[in-house]
């Protein structure tokens, strides 16, 4: 187990390195990279361009730029923002609490999918199950921005209000402004949990040991508790990890729609102003979160399921 964990951690570090290297390459060799942008600006003289290239290190060969960049990334230094005199990493770090609130909240709401999935599996083929299945199918075809738009239309045309930004003036307004975006952001996670738990529970229900337990006369409650749930919830651990990053990328859209002052909104704003240091910093954080999510999922699975052995 220990060796497995060490190997996976090393692999994860390698992954982060690979993703960031590829991004560096893409950003620097893509058409429309820094050189083209500079050349298109008519106000800049040749000397000024040379000075700018010098100050950002663009005149050095690519591999040298790469080494310098990698060295700075390790210390979480992405350089100054293009639009703001401050450090990019500082700007991003300030926004993390807001995104964390939103993400955590919607994660909690999304976990409601676990009981819903169990319920649907236990009542398979009945009305409740069918309603759940229709909702999950329909919901899979509605992206977050689509549902949010519809909810905003309904709210704006009925109660003439919808959440915008961070509520000011105490816990109440803050909560009201948080809960609707969080619920909308959670739809994807909620649906994933519901379908996954339902399928797993159905799988376990068809196992021989469940039939044995029923045959020896255990009451349904006991069977469910000791034979079904304990086994059907094992794979959920992996999903907990895999779904973590979904919230971060979903946050771009949700935060932009509801003007929530988090990292996603900063990403949107930086993208419109082509503020590369900030964009790369957020991409870096997003990649690390994704890798950590996968890592936790793999390790957690081994901890929870005694059948899994690492050698």
């Amino acid at each position: 187990m220990r060796r497995f964990v060490i190997r996976r951690v090393l692999q994860s570090l390698l992954l982060v390195w690979a993703v960031m290297s590829l991004t560096f390459l893409l950003v620097n060799i893509a058409p429309g990279g820094p050189d083209v942008v500079l050349a298109q600006n008519p106000k800049l003289t040749r000397e000024q361009i040379a000075a700018i290239r010098e100050s950002y290190g663009l005149n050095k060969p690519l591999y040298e730029q790469y080494v310098v960049w990698m060295g700075r990334i390790v210390t979480f230094d992405f350089g100054r923002s293009y639009t703001n005199p401050r450090q990019a990493s500082q700007l991003v770090l300030e926004r993390i609490p807001a995104t964390a609130q939103l993400g955590l909240f919607s994660y909690l709401i999304g976990m409601l999918g676990i009981p819903i999935g169990i319920y649907a599996a236990r009542h398979r083929g009945k009305l409740g199950d069918n309603v759940v299945r229709v909702i999950t199918v329909v919901g899979s075809c509605m992206p977050v921005w689509w549902i949010s738009l519809m909810v905003i239309i309904i709210l704006a045309n009925t109660i003439k209000w919808f959440p915008q930004g961070e509520g000011v003036g105490g816990v109440g307004p803050w909560f009201v402004n948080l809960v609707i975006p969080a619920a909308l952001l959670s739809t994807g996670v909620l649906i994933s949990f519901t379908r996954f738990v339902r399928a797993e529970t159905l799988e376990v229900l068809s196992q021989d040991y469940v039939r044995t337990a029923q045959a020896k006369g255990l009451p349904a409650k006991e069977v469910n508790r000791w034979h079904v749930f304990r086994n059907s919830l094992i794979p959920v651990v992996t999903l907990l990890g895999y779904l973590l990053p979904a919230l971060v990328s979903g946050a771009i859209i949700t935060e932009q729609i509801f003007q929530w002052p988090g990292m996603g909104r900063l990403f949107y704003q930086s993208a419109t102003s082509r503020d590369m240091p900030v964009l790369l910093c957020i991409l870096y954080i997003g990649t690390i979160l994704t890798v950590i999510g996968t890592l936790l999922a793999d390790i957690g699975y081994g901890l929870v399921d005694p059948r899994v052995r690492y050698d």
Binding site: P245, S249, F267, L279, I282, L283, L289
Partner: peptide, 9 residues
């Protein structure tokens, strides 16, 4: 492991 929406943007 790439957050694809970020990269796409």
């Amino acid at each position: 492991n790439v957050p694809s929406l970020f990269l796409l943007i």
